[in-house]
């Protein structure tokens, strides 16, 4: 029984990895376009999001097909539900990359200003979170997933710092306000992206341990710890 289900689950996995790769690549290009203020690259990012949206719908349809035809249970059920959720997070992430790309033309049109946050640091942290959350999914690694959730706090604080810097810089040089507001939106997008990575990591924890880690990571982490120490015994 169920060689069909195995095959469909393998195909679903491949489909999700393809989508994840596309989103990761588009996010990288979006941040590169921001660093170099390349509107041509930004346009490519916006166009590529159409393919991401289509892939998201196809993956969702595949999940629904598996649920309807195979009625999976236990680890298979958790896998399909997790893919359904991660698929959604990835699509949002694609939109966020697109939103960052859309800011570039506005930033370029305004007089240059000092970027109110450490763009390099915040983008590489967010990209690292994205890569780690997807690795956690492919390797079913809950420790890596917990690490991603913890990193989210750092990105949150970077975004808060950006807000303070924007307020201060606008007070010092009001003519920079339009650019600064656009950078603040970029910072907010990166913070949103980190939130989505955290959601993926929480989905991985659910898939692996059937524990809902949302809103209570510490409790989930200690449950996982005790579960794993029981397994070792």
């Amino acid at each position: 029984m169920n060689s069909h289900l195995r095959k469909d689950i393998e195909n679903l996995k491949i489909r999700l990895f393809r989508l994840a790769a596309a989103v990761e690549e588009n996010t990288r290009r979006s941040l590169k376009a921001l660093r170099t203020l390349s509107t041509a690259l930004a346009d490519e990012v916006v166009k590529a999001d159409i393919d991401i949206d289509r892939a998201e719908i196809e993956t969702e349809e595949e999940c629904l097909k598996i649920l309807a035809l195979h009625q999976p249970v236990a680890s298979d059920l958790r896998f399909v539900i997790t893919v359904l959720k991660i698929n959604n997070e990835l699509e949002h992430m694609g939109d966020t990359a697109k939103n960052i790309a859309k800011r570039i033309a506005f930033i370029k049109a305004e007089p240059p200003c000092k970027i109110p946050f450490n763009l390099e640091q915040m983008s590489s942290r967010t990209l690292f979170m994205l890569k780690s959350s997807l690795d956690a999914f492919s390797m079913q690694d809950s420790k890596l997933a917990i690490g991603v959730c913890r990193d989210d706090e750092i990105v949150d604080s970077e975004n808060r710092e950006c807000y303070s810097n924007v307020r201060r810089q606008i007070a010092e040089s009001p003519e920079s306000a339009p650019s600064l507001i656009n950078y603040l939106l970029v910072s907010k997008s990166l913070e949103r992206m980190a939130d989505l990575c955290t959601n993926i990591a929480e989905d991985v924890i659910y898939m692996r341990h059937s524990i809902i880690a949302r809103h209570n990571l510490d409790k989930a982490a200690s449950q996982i710890e005790s579960e794993e120490s029981n397994d070792r015994v």
């Binding site: 249970v73 236990a74 059920l77």
Partner: peptide, 20 residues
């Protein structure tokens, strides 16, 4: 619980059709 999160790997493998 058995059908969403079985504790035993054998149970999981059986109900997901990996053997039996």
């Amino acid at each position: 619980k058995i059908f969403t999160n079985p504790k035993n790997e054998k149970t999981n493998d059986y109900i997901t059709g990996r053997f039996g």
